[in-house]
């Protein structure tokens, strides 16, 4: 059997079994959505120009929050060293972890989109918007998965991780917000935002694949 698929299945099983992690991520996302609606009074004003920004900041914060822990279990139980000794390429380990993170994050984002469809009475579950969300999620998860190895051993990791990850994700945030606005028929500039989003996703996946082996090699 393909070792990568085994890894993904193992990770998904563990994620499913250890519910506290993704449940806290999900509730963090819901709370931040509520906080946005209180802070900007999202009920009274014209929502449409604001909503993409609200959604994408929530996605990014949840993504950083959730994927900063991605190798924590491996470090805690010294499994990563064993994995490195096993005849699996580090690329497969990286891809497995990134795919697991993408799947769990997409599940959380789907719930969020459903929730905001009901809360804000706007159609979020359109094919175009979901495409934008999927591409964007692949883009930022492949980068945060790479960077999560970065913080795993350093001290003050939990504080540092967002500081490291978020500036690198600014292009993705801009492109994601603009592309979502375009998908919601908002008047924005004519720049090819989906293209930029795709380029970012390809770039971050490529750099993850190339640099992850260097990050965990001993």
């Amino acid at each position: 059997m393909n070792p990568m698929l085994t890894l993904i299945r193992k990770d998904l099983q563990l994620t499913w079994r250890d519910r506290s992690n993704w449940l806290s991520a999900l509730s963090f996302a819901c709370i931040s959505l509520l906080i946005y609606s209180f802070a900007f009074d999202l009920v009274a004003t014209d929502l449409k120009p604001l909503l993409p920004g609200v959604l994408w900041t929530t996605f990014l914060f949840v993504g950083v929050f959730a994927s900063s822990q991605s190798f924590q279990r491996e470090w805690d139980s010294d499994v990563l060293d064993a994995l490195m000794l096993a005849p699996i390429s580090p690329t497969a380990i990286y891809l497995g972890k990134a795919l697991t993170n993408v799947i769990s994050l997409l599940a959380i984002e789907l719930v969020l989109l459903l929730l905001s469809t009901m809360l804000f009475d706007t159609a979020f579950l359109t094919a175009e918007l979901i495409l934008v969300v999927v591409i964007g999620t692949i883009g930022y998860i492949s980068l945060t998965t790479l960077l999560s190895t970065l913080g795993t051993r350093a001290r003050a990791r939990s504080m540092l991780f967002p500081v490291l990850a978020l500036p690198l994700l600014i292009p993705l945030l801009i492109a994601g917000v603009r592309a979502s606005s375009a998908a919601m028929d908002e008047p924005i500039g004519s720049a090819p935002w989906i293209l930029l989003l795709t380029v970012f996703a390809i770039w971050s996946t490529a750099s993850g694949l190339l640099l992850f082996p260097l990050a965990v090699k001993r």
Partner: peptide, 14 residues
């Protein structure tokens, strides 16, 4: 740590 931050520097530059 040096290796990790070197990777970060490369990613940041790209």
């Amino acid at each position: 740590a040096a290796r990790y931050t070197a990777i970060f520097a490369l990613v940041g530059f790209l």
